[in-house]
């Protein structure tokens, strides 16, 4: 069971973990391990509109600042993710589950739909992020490869994380 104030703590932990990964763990340049978008993916179902946009914007800025990335890149991609998030929740969750569950999870949507939900959101996020990151240097085929690889990897981690943490009865 996850409570609202716990969610904030969880978000801070994820941001810090992302900062550690960005600063101290060396990955292959084609592998994008992005945990901060997961916070937006797992935010309560009812949240949408301007609060979500602001949350995405500041979360992205903090993430870029702590990760020594190009300022604005994560924020730009996260805001597009937020635009897609609520329509996806509405499409993948029935009315009863929306009333019963606070957070999107394998339980509220069903395992397959939740996996689809994460895959689509990460794909949207990485389309923007990788495009910005590869500006003018990388051929389109490699950009597509990075997006697909990143989507599968991050959605897999996200699914596991959500399955472990978000356990509403």
């Amino acid at each position: 069971m996850i409570k609202s104030n716990h969610f904030v703590l969880l978000a801070i932990l994820i941001v810090l973990l992302q900062a550690v990964l960005d600063n101290y763990v060396a990955f292959n340049a084609s592998i994008y391990l992005m945990l901060t978008p997961l916070i937006l993916c797992l935010m309560p179902n009812r949240l949408r509109g301007i609060p979500m946009l602001l949350a995405a914007f500041f979360l992205g800025l903090v993430s870029d600042l702590l990760g020594n990335g190009i300022l604005g890149m994560s924020a730009s991609a996260m805001m597009v993710l937020v635009l897609v998030r609520y329509p996806l929740i509405r499409a993948f969750t029935n009315e009863n589950s929306l009333e019963k569950y606070v957070y999107p999870s394998p339980l509220s949507m069903g395992p397959a739909r939740f996996a689809g939900y994460l895959l689509i959101l990460y794909f949207v996020f990485l389309c923007i992020y990788v495009k910005w990151d590869s500006a003018g240097l990388v051929p389109t085929s490699l950009i597509l490869g990075r997006i697909v690889l990143g989507t599968l990897l991050n959605a897999g981690i996200g699914y596991f994380f959500a399955w472990m943490v978000v356990r509403e009865e």
Binding site: L53, L54, F57, G60, I70, L71, G72, M73, A75, S76, M79, W132
Partner: peptide
């Protein structure tokens, strides 16, 4: 507006 700020920052 926020995307504009992001693009400017980038």
């Amino acid at each position: 507006a926020l995307e504009g700020v992001c693009v400017l920052l980038i």
